[in-house]
């Protein structure tokens, strides 16, 4: 009988990713590792675990370690960490991570997700700006050199690639998360 499974998937929306991991658990697959695209599972009793995706917001390693230690002492199990994402799991029998009516908790998690994507947005924008304002002019300045054409093509491709990623992927998710935050705030007041 197959006890391990590898699945390829890619998510920008953490809600969808979390739902997918929970759906896999319902089918009897316990998530334990990812590289962002490849997901690793091992066999478990169907519906044994539930998952929650969280985001690191503490800056120092000690603060992150303290956060993980605290949650681990409260029956949440650290399933995996990948970049700024923390994947938590717990026995489904212990109940949900949050009560469905806990708006403040949903707001906290959505805000962390917004910050995570905003950081990606800022990072990519800076890379695109560097490619456009430094690498591209440098390529033109070095015209005649065999390296110049490659540098110009590379910086042009990088700039447009990043702009496309921002416009097609990051901005819609930021917009969606911003709307969700506003909806949650309006539920509180």
């Amino acid at each position: 009988m197959k006890t391990r499974k590898i699945a390829v998937n890619w998510f920008v929306d953490f809600d969808k990713e979390e739902k997918w991991l929970n759906d896999m658990a319902v089918k009897g697959w316990d998530f334990y590792r990812t590289s962002g695209v490849i997901y690793y599972f091992k066999k478990c009793t169907p519906g044994e675990f539930i998952y929650q995706i969280d985001f690191k917001e503490k800056k120092s390693k000690d603060e992150v370690a303290d956060y993980i230690s605290f949650r681990s002492s409260c029956e949440d199990q650290l399933a995996h960490q990948w970049k700024s994402k923390i994947y938590w799991k717990r026995n489904a029998a212990a109940g949900p991570f949050e009560a469905e009516n806990n708006i403040a908790a949903k707001l906290r998690l959505t805000n962390k997700a917004f910050q995570y994507h905003l950081n990606s947005f800022i990072g990519l924008t800076l890379i695109a700006a560097f490619a456009f304002l430094v690498l591209m002019p440098l390529g033109r300045h070095l015209s005649g050199c065999c390296f110049a054409k490659w540098l110009t093509d590379f910086s042009t491709g990088l700039t447009y690639g990043i702009l496309a990623a921002i416009l097609l992927i990051l901005l819609p998710i930021l917009k969606k998360l911003n709307k969700k935050i506003n909806d949650l705030i309006s539920e509180i007041f």
Binding site: Q52, D54, Y67, F70, R71, S73, C74, E75, D76, W88, G95, P96, F97, E98, A99, N102, A104, A105, R108, L109
Partner: peptide, 28 residues
């Protein structure tokens, strides 16, 4: 301790207020 707070809170509110460890960490 934190887990005790989660359990006591849930018991006092008769299960209506379930605090997650993540929320509790921020509050603490």
């Amino acid at each position: 301790h934190g887990y005790g707070i989660m359990q006591k809170t849930s018991a006092m509110s008769k299960g209506r207020l379930v605090l997650s460890a993540g929320t509790l960490y921020g509050a603490i």
